[in-house]
């Protein structure tokens, strides 16, 4: 089944420049229906209020980190199957294991380019 490029995507980062970069890269890949949140708590609220098809979240945020957001999502009956990609500057195996155990769909290490973002998206939502 073809991927709906109008699918609502939530991007989460406490760093506005990074939100802007991800939004623009997604736009270049044809995904225009993007909403933003600047921390895990705000993101969780948005996820509970509206229907999103994908979350791309930074790990290192306050007060709620990306990994805490992921755990909340996986514990929520209505959100638990939501595809969730985590973005982080930490490429240590330990972090990948933590993210895997929390139920992450895919993992992007910063800095990344459009090709990396595309390949991770394809791995999670399918070919587009």
């Amino acid at each position: 089944m073809a991927v709906d490029k109008n699918m609502p995507i939530l991007i989460v980062d406490d760093y506005k420049t990074m939100l802007r970069i991800i939004r623009n890269l997604l736009k270049q890949l044809g995904f225009d229906n993007v909403e933003e949140a600047t921390d895990g708590t705000a993101a969780l609220q948005k996820l509970r209020e509206s229907e999103f098809k994908l979350v791309i979240s930074d790990w290192n945020m306050e007060p709620m980190t990306g990994i805490e957001l992921l755990r909340e999502v996986r514990a929520d009956e209505n959100l638990k199957k939501l595809p969730f990609i985590i973005v982080t500057a930490e490429s240590k195996t330990k972090n990948v294991v933590i993210a895997k155990e929390a139920g992450v769909s895919n993992y992007i290490v910063k800095p990344f380019n459009a090709a990396t973002l595309k390949s991770k998206l394809v791995g999670v939502i399918g070919e587009f």
Binding site: Y15, T17, I21, Q28, A114
Partner: peptide
């Protein structure tokens, strides 16, 4: 132009890494 601007966006992510480090 799309290729060029994509490269600019990719390059800009250095700032996030710089800030964190």
């Amino acid at each position: 132009l799309v290729t060029a601007t994509t490269q600019i966006y990719e390059a800009c992510s250095f700032q996030d890494i710089t800030g964190q480090r």
